[in-house]
Amino acid sequence: MLLSLNSFLILGAVLFSIGLFGALSKRNAVSVLMGIEIMLNAVNITLVAFGSSVVNPQFSGRLTGQIFAVFIITVAAAEAAVALAMIIAIYRQRSTVDVGDINMMKW
């Protein structure tokens, strides 16, 4: 059967791998952030799929995955706001967003 838990888990794994590739292989800091957003989406899909696959109807265990997804979306929005503010601040100081050139905290 196609529309089972495994299909969604495999979709989440593939999407996570694509996001990881983007986050590891890009120079632009905004592009790295986009890869991280794709990874967070993959984790959300996995959580909601696990929550929807709960067959026991007791105590709305089905909704726990969705609650976790809500919190992940919240934290991802906060993370995106802070990260983009940092990128803009760094660009104002150094006129680059290349993560290879941003080495102020390296020693």
């Binding site: 794994a13 593939v14 996570f16 791998s17 694509i18 990881l20 590739f21 590891l24 292989s25 890009k26 120079r27 632009n28 592009s31 993560v99 290879g100």
Partner: peptide, 18 residues
């Protein structure tokens, strides 16, 4: 949107994880 020098190893890691 250039790629850095780690593209090959990043692809290897992603494919292995998947």
């Amino acid at each position: 949107n250039p790629s850095n020098r780690q593209t090959l190893i990043a692809a290897l890691i992603a494919v292995a994880l998947c």
